[in-house]
Computed example of a mutant assay.
Amino acid sequence: MSDKSFEMNDVVEMKKPHPCGENKWKIIRMGMDIRIKCLGCGHSVMIPRKEFTKKMKRVLEKSNSTEV
């Protein structure tokens, strides 16, 4: 699957793990920049969308689209 489609609240895997050792991130904000939160230590990082799509490896869990 070469299509890297992602949505709000998806859990994604990045190419490099966070310094805490965790490699699972939750998308908590989307726009020109994307804010992701480490599921290991809770640290959040905001990175440009273009950089995020380059550094993202794959979507691990899709969000429930029933959430409002």
Score class of each variant (00 low, 15 high):
E51A: 07
S44C: 08
V59D: 01
F52K: 05
K37M: 15
T53V: 14
E61T: 13
M1G: 08
N23L: 11
S2N: 07
I34D: 03
F52R: 03
L39E: 12
M30K: 13
F6P: 00
M56P: 00
S44I: 07
P19W: 08
V59K: 06
E22F: 09
K4F: 11
W25I: 04
K37S: 12
T53D: 01
K54H: 03
K24Y: 13
R58F: 04
M46V: 14
D10N: 12
C41G: 02
I47D: 00
R35M: 11
H43A: 11
K26H: 05
L60K: 12
N64R: 09
S2F: 07
R49K: 07
L60H: 05
K37D: 02
K55Q: 11
V45I: 12
V59W: 05
F52N: 04
K55R: 14
M8L: 15
K57T: 02
K37T: 13
V12M: 04
M14T: 06
H18W: 08
M30V: 14
H18V: 07
E61I: 13
S44N: 11
F6W: 09
V59P: 04
W25M: 09
M8E: 03
I28K: 07
C41N: 05
M56A: 07
S65F: 15
T53I: 15
R29L: 11
E7C: 04
K57E: 12
V68P: 08
N23W: 11
L39M: 13
R49D: 00
R29F: 12
M30T: 13
M14G: 02
P17N: 04
E67G: 03
N9V: 04
G40M: 14
G31D: 04
C41F: 09
N9P: 00
T66F: 15
G40Q: 12
M14K: 03
D33T: 09
M32R: 14
M14A: 06
E51H: 02
E61A: 10
V68M: 15
I34W: 05
K50F: 12
R49P: 00
P48A: 10
K24I: 06
R58I: 06
D33F: 14
E7K: 14
E22S: 10
R49S: 00
S2I: 08
V12Q: 01
V45D: 03
K24D: 12
C20G: 01
M14P: 00
V12C: 05
P19M: 03
P17Y: 10
K62I: 02
I27H: 05
M8I: 14
N64H: 14
S2T: 08
V59H: 05
E22K: 04
I34K: 01
E51M: 06
T66G: 12
K62N: 07
G42P: 01
E51R: 10
M8Y: 14
R49C: 00
K37Q: 15
M56H: 03
N23I: 12
N9Q: 07
E13Q: 13
K50P: 00
R29N: 02
F6R: 01
G31R: 03
L39F: 09
K26L: 14
S63Y: 05
K50S: 11
P48M: 08
N23V: 09
K15L: 10
T53N: 01
C20M: 05
H18A: 10
K26Q: 15
K62S: 12
K57G: 04
D10I: 08
T66E: 14
K62H: 13
V59N: 02
V59Y: 07
C38D: 06
